[in-house]
């Protein structure tokens, strides 16, 4: 029998190892799997390479993971959102590495990683510093830059609904990177607001098919990052 449900966030992230590459879903706070990130802080794996569009805000979630010195390298498109103090400080002190990737290139590198495509050509970044040192090629008179796919050991994402096969439903713009990260990681871990019976999700409405999902944890009342930041909460 297939049952991907795991008892707790701690159990779900227990085997994330030192030096692992971890994709974390979310765009700002929308879709950020905050309970899974906090479980990873409790677990303590170090020298992680983390892929997320941003670097978190305040002192909770992704920002707290970085502040806890568990991240050696960030791969992201926009590391200095309003309210992100942790990453800029460590970056200026030379204590964390940054690979800056245009947002659409980041998405396509992740999608390709999950789709079995090792590299692709894109018009994005041609003639800019972010294309330096990369192979380029002309197609039909237009120059494109070659970008490599990204894969990960783990992906941590958040959904509103999941069944035991791992079929997922997301809420509004909280979907963002989750479906493609789910494809690109060896082990994809989902925290879901509602764990439902097989058949409860209409197949026509599945947003991320269960084949890409490995573990599901039910977190019925997920915390809201902006609220924690406003309250000045620091994790742990």
């Amino acid at each position: 029998m297939i049952d991907k449900k795991v008892s707790s966030p701690a159990a779900a992230v227990a085997d994330i190892f030192d030096g692992a590459t971890v994709m974390i879903g979310g765009f700002g706070e929308a879709g950020s799997p905050i309970e899974l990130i906090h479980a990873l802080i409790d677990q303590g794996a170090k020298n992680l390479t983390v892929i997320n569009n941003n670097t978190g805000s305040g002192h909770v979630g992704l920002a707290a993971l970085i502040e806890n010195k568990q991240v050696g390298k960030m791969i992201c498109s926009f590391p200095r959102t309003a309210g992100s103090m942790v990453f800029p400080e460590l970056y200026r002190a030379g204590q964390i590495e940054l690979e800056l990737v245009p947002q659409g290139t980041l998405a396509e590198r992740i999608r390709s990683g999950g789709a079995g495509i090792p590299a692709f050509y894109t018009p994005t970044s041609v003639g800019t510093p972010l294309a330096e040192g990369k192979e380029s090629r002309e197609f039909d008179g237009v120059t494109y830059v070659m970008e490599r796919a990204i894969k990960a050991d783990f992906a941590l994402i958040k959904s509103t609904k999941a069944d035991r096969y791992g079929n997922l439903i997301f809420n509004k713009t909280a979907r963002n990177f989750a479906p493609i990260m789910a494809m690109a990681a060896d082990i994809t871990i989902v925290q879901t607001k509602s764990y439902v019976e097989i058949g409860d999700i209409d197949p026509e409405t599945v947003m991320s098919p269960g084949i890409f999902i490995n573990r599901i944890v039910e977190v019925t009342n997920p915390q809201q990052e902006s609220k924690l930041v406003k309250e000045g909460v620091c994790y742990p």
């Binding site: 498109s77 926009f78 590391p79 200095r80 990453f87 800029p88 970056y91 200026r92 940054l98 800056l100 990737v101 245009p102 947002q103 659409g104 290139t105 994005t124 970044s125 800019t128 972010l130």
Partner: peptide, 9 residues
């Protein structure tokens, strides 16, 4: 702190 977001795309 370099940040590009979706501008180049």
């Amino acid at each position: 702190i370099p940040a590009v977001g979706g501008a180049m795309d």
